[in-house]
Design a protein around this nucleic acid. Sequence first.
RNA 1: GGGUGAGUAGCUCAGCUGGUUAGAGCGCACGGUUCACAUCCGUGAGGUCGAAGGUUCAAGUCCUUUCUCGCCCACCA
Length: 919
Amino acid sequence: MSEPMMAKAYNPHEVETTLYDWWEKQGFFTPEQQLNSGLADPAQPPFVISMPPPNVTGALHLGHAITSSVEDMLIRYHRMAGNPTLWVPGTDHAGIATQNVVERQLEKQGMTRHTLGRERFVQEVWDWKDEYHGRITAQQRRLGISCDWTRERFTLDEGLSQAVLTAFVQMYEEGLIYKGNYLVNWCPRCMSAISDLEVDYEEVTGKFYTFRYPLADGGYLEVSTTRPETILGDTAVAVHPDDERYRQAVGKTAIVPVLGREIPVIADAYVDPEFGTGALKVTPGHDPNDYEIAKRHNLPMINIMNKDATLNEAAGKYAGLDRYDARKELWADMQAAGLVVGAKEHTHQVGHCQRCNSVVEPLLSEQWWVKMQPLAEPALEAVRSGAVQIVPQRFERVYNHWLENIRDWCISRQLWWGHRIPVWYGPDQTAFAAHSTAEAQAKAQAHFGRSVELVQDPDVLDTWFSSGLWPFSTLGWPAQSKDFATFYPTSVLETGYDILFFWVARMIMMGLKFTGQPPFHTVYLHGLVRDEQGRKMSKSLGNALDPLDLIAQYGTDALRFTLLTGGTPGNDIKLAENRVEANRNFANKIWNAARFVIMRLEDGAPEVDGSDPNSPLYLLPPNDLLNLPDRWILSRLEAVRQETTRLVDNWQLGEAGRQLYEFLWNEYCDWYIEAAKVRLNEDTAVEAQATRQVLAFVLEQSLRLLHPFMPFVTEAIWQNLPGVGQGAPDNAGSSPVAEGDRPQARALIVTRWPAAGERRQETAETDFGRIQEIVRGIRNVRSEYDVPAPKRISALFSASEINDLLTENLPLLIALARLDAAETLVAAELVAPSKAATLAAAGATVYLPLAGLVDLAAERKRMQGEIANIDRQLGRIESMLNNPGFTGKAPAEVIEREQSKQAELQGRRVQLAERLSEL
RNA sequence: GGGUGAGUAGCUCAGCUGGUUAGAGCGCACGGUUCACAUCCGUGAGGUCGAAGGUUCAAGUCCUUUCUCGCCCACCA
């Protein structure tokens, strides 16, 4: 195949979709294909992630981008490590959210769901789902996620619906699901109950109204409220039992203003005498605390509100008014009646519907509930025992606290979009939970002894009910499927910490309940993506960055790398656009380094190891052909391989990425490639060839290490490497060869993560470090003396102990420090020229005559500064080494390091001082 | 009220198990037509690591107190 010339700059858009389609078509995302191709080792445990399903009608945002980046990183890493790897994608029907979207759409056409009727409305939502499903999944593909699309699921699929039915019926039969009339959080806009978690509390400045509650036998009590309309539902006034002020009032009768209803004055310890007037109006139908008080005192509970937050007949003359209008009118009437004491500003927490931001009302209503305590216990134990580990660990406390104080979960929603509650009622309201109408009928028949007409419960389940089953329902449960047997429990559940309760805790509870096992062994929580000022990104603030825009501007890899390396686990990340840009530059940098290497490989192809697809693509030359830079970069590569592997295994993904960045840019590009040029240009053919192989070897291994972080640019480069051969995207799908006969394509995505090498050479690192120190020192002097960059200068090295090192690597020094070869000399000892800048580095003294440029006074000053700097450091070290506490207690290794540093500094000091005295 | 995270260079952040002169990117200054890359190269300036105590031979890193900001949970009418 003809090698396509690599473009001068990396263009993400030329490769991303092509590569993605090719990967997908090749089947690399499926565990079956990984096993068939020999990448995955059947002896290794599978690595499985259930993808948090995005809302099917949602649009991609940075939350999805960070989730995808982290999960795809883990998936690619484990796939390369040889685990059969499965990442199950899917979408969520997102009950209220989706229904609201469609309802808003209907509204624009002057319709409501009721004008359409249930069946047609649900059909309408399905149409939406079909339209938008393609959009969200296409957007996810742009992120490069290597999930197994052949196993994609939707929460309202047949299979997942079966899971929901099974779970519901079983829990119902065990008494874990029950129906009851309780106070719920009611959203008057959604016209549905919502769970505690779906209520967001916001601080609101309202009014604190104080008024007189008349007593039947004269007098009054002063009482305060933030919601005067609830007076209409009062069934008592309560005071603290020990409150002297109100002792006589207890037992008396109060009169509800306007309505004239008689209610008792009671004593209850809940009342805080310090707060307000110390007397509390009790509205059991519209306040959770009052509800509890009412239960203790057997008070009646009055519901004054309709489901749309207008008042009902119980409100007397206010019936039909909206809650806020009623508030005003009632207050005006009270004022007229002389009952008003006053109203002052008051800030307090008010519950809002998470989905539509309406103010939520506590309302008495009959709903379905899950009994949580019995589910919470095992879920707590799973984390306590370590069967489930949460990363970062601090979230375990949050998790524990929530589960220890858990309350029953309201799971019924008065919506049409979702899993309809599988309960049918007979003529006498007897309830039958069943998997189907037919089964319900059979149950009813058995119960009544005859066939009766059944009516199914109209409500649907909270969308998080089906989400709780996701890790196993997507694998086929309740059927005993092969996938379930093979891939359950999954490995890691990765998501943002904001849905720890909504989703993660419920999955653990449901997983333990229905499969007897925790659904995953690790929970990895990432932070939330915020704007540069740390604010939440939102449409209304207009500060939301669109991941698709960022991808269009900088490429997918740049965005992914930024999200992966821009923060630390569990902490929010403030996304600065210039970091994305910097990482775009990084992708380009690698691209160009590769371009250079590949061009040079045209002078002599490197030896390819074709024997084992799991070993490095290129062979290394024999040791005796390796020079210092070769040995150095190989040693560094091995160190970085070890470090990144360790870091990824310890969930320090960002740190791993940052290390690769620094290795590739600051070591491979800045030093090794520059050093390699010397040998490629000047040495013998055999040596040049050896260097070409090292260049190729290190590049190829680095691409593997970087691939999970930057999948596209690494694969694009890899496909251009000589020896990769056929299989490039150009051939994908269009080959006339039958599927089975086509040679297995080679792709970076299915190469092995580099295995441990034996190339670590501390001496090479020390020696090359000396060269670097000297080169940097010379560059520094050049810069200080304003030597024009292209100008070659003469240099005299009085090398003493590193004479051999410098002699051997003289061409390297000449090239990197831009020395004049004809006027450069290395010797163990040489006489200092009279007029030269002097540098003490790495044990050598370097004289740079810099004809005509050296100003002796300036040079003296420069050296004095240098000596002062050395003295500062020496002072620090000496006080350490003179401290018996240090020498007695510090590890030998640390002491040795300080000693050798001291020796080196003293050496340099002597060199500089000698020179200074000569000047 | 309880819990928790953050406070490190002008900005955005690293610094993982305490041990070289605390790092990066961007920005800034100076210099660059070095045959991969100006999405680049070289050099440099810039930090009492929020504050105060303490533990330790040694603290940005551990402990206590404290200040500022953020988030989560919680029934104060």
